[in-house]
């Protein structure tokens, strides 16, 4: 019974996995661009973002069609509602990766004299969170979703510490205000990326339990 719905849900899950993988890849490349200042990578990430956006629209259209034609209920309906939240947040994370890559290239023109470890750690945590959030969705693993969301605290802590460092640096080098602004913007992208992954995790918990969870304040 309802084979068509189940088959199409399977295809949607597959495409969300694909979308999640592309987003992870974009973040990894952006992280690499940050380390190396590779301008070609930044372009690559932007091209990849168009692919992510296209995938998202395709998934959303098919999810809407399933709701219209199959009248899903209960777990199936909650999953389809969740799909919209997943694609929305994954798409935003992809945008953040593109911004990050662009900023990485600009930073390369005028290298920052302090190490960028914190930004790299934030980006790495973001990659791991996206991976776990998508995995939690596919495996229907509430504990993993909660675990992934908890990593947002690490990103937030790094963000706050990084802001303090940049401001301290800026106090001694007021001529570097433009560079400092870029660094703060980059750190803020990564901080918001963590929020979007938290949204992914909350959506997964909602799908599994029907309850709206607040996984981070």
């Amino acid at each position: 019974m309802r084979n068509q719905l189940n088959e199409e849900l399977d295809e949607l899950r597959h495409d969300i996995l694909a979308m999640g993988s592309l987003v992870e890849e974009a973040l990894r490349k952006a992280l690499h661009a940050l380390k190396t200042g590779d301008a070609a990578l930044a372009k690559d990430v932007r091209r990849g973002d168009a692919e992510i956006d296209a995938l998202r629209l395709g998934i959303d259209d098919r999810a809407a069609m399933l709701i219209a034609t199959q009248q899903p209920v209960a777990g199936n309906l909650r999953e389809l509602v969740t799909v919209f939240k997943l694609t929305d947040n994954l798409e935003r994370i992809g945008d953040h990766a593109a911004h990050l890559a662009k900023t990485a290239r600009r930073l390369a023109d005028d290298p920052y004299p302090l190490p960028l470890d914190r930004l790299e750690r934030m980006a790495a945590a973001g990659v791991a969170m996206v991976h776990d959030a998508v995995e939690a969705y596919l495996r229907r693993d509430e504990a993993l979703a909660r675990e992934a969301a908890a990593k947002d605290d690490e990103i937030d802590a790094e963000h706050k510490a990084f802001l303090r460092e940049v401001l301290a640096y800026l106090a001694g080098r007021p001529d570097k205000a433009e560079q400092a602004t870029k660094l703060i913007a980059t750190s803020s992208f990564l901080e918001r990326l963590g929020d979007h992954v938290t949204n992914l995790c909350e959506a997964v918990v909602f799908m599994l339990t029907g309850a709206h969870a607040e996984l981070n304040d």
Binding site: R2, P72, V73, A74, G75, N76, L77, R78, T209, G210
Partner: peptide, 13 residues
């Protein structure tokens, strides 16, 4: 939207 019993979920789905 969120049936408590798996048999309910299976039937209405």
């Amino acid at each position: 939207f969120n049936p408590a019993d798996e048999r309910t979920e299976n039937y209405i789905s």
